[in-house]
Nucleic acid binder design. Structure first.
Length: 728
RNA sequence: GCGCGAUUAGCUCAGUUGGUAGAGCAACUCAUUUACACUGAGAAGGUCGGGGGUUCAAGUCCCUCAUCGCGCACCA
């Protein structure tokens, strides 16, 4: 190498540790993450098309995992691409209070560190602790996001539980209440005895477990045998239902039997015929327990049967004598089975595998209980919306083509879910969250955005399902309910929602519900669903398995650019991907390759004044230019189609195997033996190609490309993050 | 029970409207003050899960089976 007059940094291998922090600071200080600043400083046209993404707010339950890193990378690629195309680009960050998840996390810590329960502290003091924890998590998350190179507009940062979002929540609730979409009802709900709260159908996780399926009679003179996996609930039976066409039982339908002593409990059992009962299942007869089974409750309603609650909120029995009273359901089950056995009533005992319902957050086994709760009616016609129901609005938004889901097979999954949707239970018996904006005074109920002025009203103790506020996210972040808020008018509907396919129901569907109903707009045009990042063996990463990869740790070790590339390449939408350190290492090498390409190009083109519009190319370069520009065209198209995994691989391929291994190799000879015209043509080509490569690669590897850009001999250059995407 | 996805080189994955299989990583051979060892050159590696069909032509379209994974429903 001749005495190079290039940046001495280039003489050493690329060091991400010395680069990434100061580059991020450069971006932040520039203000270019904020689209308003881009307009002010003249890098974006005032009337350019807007492009907006709302960051799926990470839960303030701790730290970011590799899945978050993947989310941040994909979205950052979309956003940087849009920004470089000159769009008015807003990527709005935030965090989610995650109500039940955060509360149970803090409860665990409290229990472990101080041996206290939340009730020992009281609502106010406990919430202080939760807020403190949430704040600390938030700060960690923010610093992690910065490490990954996330180009979000921090000046607009939002939190699902801050004042502005609270106003949005109260406004939305009140409107739904006034429209009769939100109602209070006494229903069988999913009760989580561990979390001491109701949860929605979607927060249930089914676990396969072995169970015993018992067949027995209530008493020796009872005419019909029934089967159950939960004998303890049978003390709450009020009927036996059979299929009305089942000849075995026809003669009994309509009769009522008194069972004087069913393990110490008196039962009054009516025999009824109901189509919901399958002849072939079990004995073809079903003991009806209206208080503790959804289906039984429905049957009971059809036949005007009474409801008899026998299990309480702590999953303990509320009837019977000392053998079962106040015992846990599982203990009572053993007692009752023993009793059946000694009485000679137990006819059969089979091993079965059954799906048991557990609470997603606490792992508690769900106990169906009758309770007074708040619900959203998804089947009520809405006058303001052409008499459509929420369900219909949700279906229409996707069916009508307004919202495009990538990959499209998830559209089917979405329809299926919406079609089977039941009323959404939105009240939670937890302290952390948006308090329900309803006040009571005697028999009177008041729902309002603000508390009633007069004395004597007390607010509902419950809080809202965290997904209620998340459902408002695309517009509560933009100034809604102020319909004239400039951000709302400019950036809604948002362009893309990028999130994991595992929360399509929880979140994507709820956002569509809220947005179409409250503002009559779709919340986003495109939904890009990403898969789960797994370990090399294909297992889900988790702390308990010890296979979790800390995005921060690997970014520190290999550079955030390398981590980003490895999260993109080989990762299509909707598919799970596998991560390994080997893969990351390969892209760390790639960052260094770029570095050395730059060293070669700059040290061999010294004295050349780079001319972007250089036209005196030799034939050889013309061919190379065509090849390169065709690739960029292809890549640009694939970027528009969200095929980032292809683009990443193609640039990698081109820069390494083509540009470095072939073009640079042959350039050595040209620079050594060529005449001035030939050398000049080649030098301009190398510089021009490096410039374009850096631009195209920037959304993927923003740090190293920005750092190299700062050393490029380009006149009047801005930061690479706001340079224009190659326009061919 | 209904539905979805996957199955391509040792591993991770591409493979657009059908035109005789590609990349990265790993392993192998060779090269060694080279822009870069965070390197280069080379070679090797696949009956595209099985079977059937459509077609001049199938990894690609259709049917079927298998294995793995997932979602929903059921769960008396």
């Amino acid at each position: 190498m001749n005495e190079p007059n290039i940046d001495p940094k280039l003489l050493k291998p690329y060091d991400s540790k010395e680069t990434e922090d100061h580059i991020y600071k450069l971006w932040e200080d520039s203000g270019f993450f904020n689209p308003d600043v881009c307009i002010e400083k003249g890098v974006t046209k005032k009337d350019a098309d807007p492009f907006s993404i709302m960051l799926p707010p990470p839960n303030v339950t701790g730290v970011l995992h590799i899945g978050h890193a993947s989310m941040l990378t994909i979205e950052d690629i979309m956003v940087r691409f849009a920004r470089m195309k000159g769009m008015r680009t807003l990527w709005l960050p935030g965090t989610d209070h995650a109500a039940i998840a955060t509360q149970s996390k803090v409860e665990k810590i409290l229990e472990k560190e101080e041996g206290k329960r939340k009730t020992d502290l009281g609502r106010e003091e406990f919430l202080k602790r939760v807020n403190k924890f949430a704040q600390e998590s938030h700060d960690t998350i923010v610093s992690q996001m910065k490490k990954m190179g996330t180009s979000v507009d921090w000046s607009r940062e939002a939190f699902t539980l801050d004042d502005k979002r609270n106003l949005a929540v109260r406004t939305a609730f009140k409107k739904m209440y006034d429209d009769g979409l939100i109602y209070r009802g006494h229903r069988i709900v999913n009760w989580d005895p561990k979390g001491q709260t109701v949860i929605s159908d979607d927060e249930i996780v089914y676990e396969e477990r072995k169970a015993k399926f018992y067949t027995f009679k209530y008493s020796s003179d009872f005419p019909i045998s029934i089967s159950t996996t939960r004998p303890e609930t049978k003390v709450g039976d009020v009927a036996v239902a059979v299929n009305p066409t089942d000849e075995r039982y026809l003669e009994y339908i309509g009769k009522t039997y008194i069972v004087e002593n069913f393990c110490g409990v008196k039962l009054e059992v009516k025999i009824i015929g109901d189509d919901a009962v399958e002849k072939d299942f079990g004995t073809g007869a079903l003991g009806v327990t209206p208080a503790h089974s959804q289906i039984d409750a429905e049957i009971a309603t059809r036949h005007s049967l009474p409801t008899k609650q026998v299990i309480n909120e702590y999953a303990k029995m509320t009837v019977g004598d000392e053998r079962i009273l106040n015992k846990k359901t599982t203990e009572a089950r053993t007692v009752i089975v023993e009793w059946l056995r000694t009485e000679g009533l137990l006819e059969k005992e089979e091993e079965v595998t059954q799906n048991i319902s557990t609470a997603e957050r606490t792992g508690g086994i769900i106990e169906p209980l009758p309770k007074l709760q708040w619900f959203i009616n998804v089947n009520k016609q809405i006058v303001d919306r052409d008499n459509k129901t929420l369900k219909e609005l949700m279906l229409e938004a996707v069916r009508g083509g307004g919202i495009n889901i990538i990959p499209d097979r998830f559209e089917k999954v979405y329809y299926n879910w919406v079609e089977n949707l039941r009323d959404w239970c939105i009240s939670r018996q937890i302290w952390y969250g948006h308090r329900i904006p309803v006040w009571y005074k005697g028999e009177k109920i008041y729902c309002g955005i603000e508390a009633p002025k007069e004395e004597g009203w007390s607010q509902d103790e419950d809080t809202l399902d965290t997904w209620f506020s998340s459902g408002l996210w695309t517009f509560s972040t933009l100034g809604w309910p102020d319909l004239d808020a400039p951000d709302f008018k400019t950036y809604h509907p948002t362009n893309v929602l990028e999130t994991g396919y595992d929360i399509i129901f929880f979140w994507v569907a709820r956002m569509i519900l809220m947005s179409t109903y409250l503002i009559g707009q779709i919340p986003f045009k495109t939904v890009y669903l990403q898969g789960i990042v797994r370990d090399v063996q294909g297992r889900k990463m988790s702390k308990s398995l010890g296979n979790a990869m800390d995005p921060l740790e690997v970014s520190q070790k290999y550079g955030a650019d390398a981590v980003r590339m490895s999260l993109i390449i080989g990762t299509g939408p909707g598919n799970d991907s596998k991560m390994s350190e080997d893969k990351i290492r390969a892209y760390k090498n790639y960052a260094n390759k770029l570095w050395n390409i730059t060293r070669f190009v700059l040290s061999n083109t010294e004295g050349i004044i780079y001319d972007e519009n250089f036209s005196l190319y030799e034939e050889k370069e013309k061919i190379l230019i065509e090849e390169r520009d065709n690739l960029i065209k292809e890549i640009t198209k694939e970027m528009e189609e969200y095929k980032f995994y292809l683009v990443g691989e193609k640039i990698y391929q081109y820069t390494w195997s083509r540009f470095a291994d072939v073009i640079i190799e042959e350039s050595k000879d040209i620079f050594l033996n060529g005449n001035e015209l030939v050398k000049n043509s080649r030098a301009q080509f190398l510089l021009n190609t490096l410039v374009k490569t850096l631009k195209v690669l920037h959304p993927f590897m923003p740090f190293v490309t920005e750092e190299i850009w700062s050393m490029m001999p380009v006149q009047n250059k801005k930061l690479l993050m706001v340079e224009r995407w190659p326009n061919l």
